[in-house]
Design a protein around this nucleic acid. Sequence first.
DNA 1: TATTGATCATAT
DNA 2: ATATGATCAATA
Length: 233
Amino acid sequence: MIPPSGLPAPETEAELLRRARRLAGRPLSFLAANLGLEVPPDQRHAKGWVGQLLEKSLGSTASSRAVPDFEALGVEMKTLPVDARGVPTESTFVATLDMAESDAMRWEHSSIRKKLARVLWIPVEAEPTIALGDRRVGTALLWSPSTEEEAALRQDFEEIVDLIAEGFGESITGERGRYMQLRPKGASSRTLRWATDPEGAPVRTAPRAFYLRAGFTAELVRRHYQLAGGRRG
DNA sequence: TATTGATCATAT
DNA sequence: ATATGATCAATA
């Protein structure tokens, strides 16, 4: 499968990281020009554009399919909107949870665990005062959760899926979960899916997805650059 | 003003 | 319709 750019998929993690880091410091308009794309005038109508731009720029073959962005490497790519200090400004979407699938609600088998096993994080400037095309790509980092991080994520996951198993899925809000929350994720609030109430009766509720809180990714990035002997504010 | 809930585009 | 990619915007 040849991506639109004609760029072949990277064959190793090292190559992927090299490609990503070669983009560090470049404005998004530069990446767009390389691919023959226009920079959208309004991000409100192009919310996923930055992520898709980076995928294409790196040779991802998995546009919109339910596979890792770099399938052969098992690597997921996530852009990370950051402020002037490099601190993430938004939560990170991980995966939708199917409340009707009991298997999806076991950590070991979950798509959450799978997707977070290996992630290429790419910070991107996201201050609204900077025009979209002028926002620069930061230094990418390849990450896997430490034992402690995975335990913490698992704890949030299990707290939430246990509530769902007890029939409280419909009433779960974004306030649960220390590092990872469950929030609505649909085309609109009119989008509904099946869940089960405490009496075991089927009910319609908003589809929900797991998101990493900004505090989690902020800590992850901060520790990485500290260990790398990197920059400080 | 930080966070939760709602929403937008594209591809399959 | 549902998956991918997220950010917008109302609320607390």
